[in-house]
Amino acid sequence: MANRYWGLASTIGKKLLMGLTGLALVGFVFVHLAGNLLLLSPNPDHFNLYAHTLESMGFLLYLAEAGLVLVFGVHIYNGISISLKNRRARPVQYRKKGNAGGASYKNTSSMSMIWTGLILFVFLIWHLIAFKFGGGIEAGYTTQLSGVEGPVRDLYALVVERFGEAWFSGLYVLVMVLLGVHLRHGFWSAFQSLGANHPRYMPYVRALGLVVALVLAVGFLFIPIYLYVTGGAQA
């Protein structure tokens, strides 16, 4: 039976995983945004302390990171596999494209999930290289935090430095817009994929989706713009 692995290999199962991982990512991104907003603080120590605290969680951090990798992995793998199957299921396109309007939620956002997704994927690699694996203590990004012994990684400086470059900030802003586009459809869609659709509440979920997309996109893109314009706290 194709219903192996608790049905997760079927089209419905794959969408269940998409929805679950998608919402988990939304959760992560929200937390990440909250942390990153510390970058807006006039005191760089706030952000660095936050980053340091995270980094010193040791095993717990690894566990969380492993979870994150898994979530991303499943989301990306399924996203690609779903898109490939969909392409096979509709190999010939209509010569004349149309949109029925009315009850339809087909829009740029829903039609570009795989593209916004793949761009997010590339962004992610770039992002990790830039920040997670870029400029550590060895490279001289050090600072002192009160109440913490020894030198600490000055992640704040790294971020401010990178966002000082116009192309870097510009690209970030662009990707954050695409993140919003991904979530414009993604958020409510995840609920529908999980089977959570009650005609009474669905309009609110859809509205919430718009809010989530806007908050995340605007929240994130504000950071590079702000840092680029102001040059950060100790400039």
Partner: peptide
């Protein structure tokens, strides 16, 4: 699935 239909990405064009 076996008949070769695609996944539902919740476009809702079908309902329309």
């Amino acid at each position: 699935d076996e008949a070769g239909f695609g996944n539902c990405s919740n476009h809702a064009e079908c309902e329309a």
